[in-house]
Design a binder for these strands. Structure first.
Lengths: 186, 186
DNA sequence: AGGCGCATGTAAGCCGTTACATGATTCC
DNA sequence: GGAATCATGTAACGGCTTACATGCGCCT
């Protein structure tokens, strides 16, 4: 059955979450999806534009045309009161467990088929990626952690601080795991 | 452009990984995808059957018809030498970073829009899910951790032990994160 | 007699990636 | 003059979920 016009997709809620923080053009939303939202959700611009149209048809966002570059009119979107309400309801609603897709672990699960050197290099590769991600999280967290806004439950930076701290903990655990595996593969 | 016949999809390598451990029917593979592979990759049976056909066309798996229930012949699949080779090459190949899809964090990122009680209940919900997953990992790990096979680099259980230990570390970090968030939301 | 587990498949539709298409402004 | 950035869209295709479809054997 087709999706109800009143219940946006996960991407729709990601965009509402972005617009609840700051109004933006579709292009800006695509950029903001790369970082920092890209740490937990990603989308290409080719997905963003149609989704904005759907959200607008559902009355959850609205746009005004502004000055800008390009062959078509530049549209700046903002969440409507109905959009803010839909976002709040989604955040507070029951969360059913999601199907996992972890390609790194899927590979490691077949690591017994390759020799020790290949295995060690695979794990070392994964470790350096996790270290890079960890450093990015720590840098971003350092920018807001000491501000009063990051302590205010009703401020977007509070939520940013929570999610970044979670990223730091999870990447530290991943690095610890890689170190343990390298030890096991000695 | 269409995918090369010689390079299976991620699901294809998941199935090869399963068949490298033990020959199975499509039905059994669907079951084994739920647990334990389901901890890091999932697939429905409607995806498994066509993928097995593709793998067989590529010469990576082979089937024999066996006695069984049902209106159609029951097929038992096994990885061919070419399939084992393809699996090994995939495991050892460069791993490019994957796009992340973490619905839980996406929600938490908009948690500033709801009141404190709704926020606390959301985090408490997430915590109990992580605790349940952690316990499942620990139970499964306990079954193999003391066996000699789990220390043998070339044995499937060695890889199972690595991935399960990673699951334990990551779920512990997730529970720790939830506890920290509940403290922040006091 | 009915329900569950075994067993294999197809169809419709959504979600997401990659590529195609266009054009203005700004910086080197 | 050329490349990067801003800016919006469409098309083709693959992956994944949900639902449809069939039927045997076993257990209660």
């Amino acid at each position: 059955m087709p999706r109800q016009a009143s219940t946006p997709s996960n991407l729709g809620f990601a965009l509402l979450g972005l617009l609840a923080r700051r109004r933006s053009t579709g292009y800006e939303l695509s950029r903001r999806m790369e970082r920092p939202v890209g740490y937990f959700w990603t989308a290409q611009h080719s997905q963003v534009y149609p989704e904005l149209t759907r959200l607008e048809r559902a009355g959850l966002v609205r746009h005004v045309v502004v000055e800008g570059a390009g062959p078509r009119p530049t549209k700046r979107y903002a969440a409507t009161p109905a959009g803010m309400r839909a976002l709040r309801e989604w955040v507070a609603s029951e969360m059913e467990p999601q199907p996992v897709r972890d390609l790194e672990t899927l590979r490691l699960w077949s690591i017994w088929t390759v020799d020790r050197e290949a295995a060690r290099s695979l794990v070392a590769q994964a470790r350096s990626r996790h270290v890079g991600t960890l450093e990015a999280y720590e840098r971003e967290l350092a920018e807001i952690v000491d501000t009063p806004q990051a302590r205010d439950h009703a401020h977007p930076w509070f939520a940013s601080r929570l999610t970044l701290h979670g990223g730091v903990l999870s990447r530290r655990a991943a690095v610890e795991w890689c170190d343990w595996m390298l030890h096991e593969l000695e």
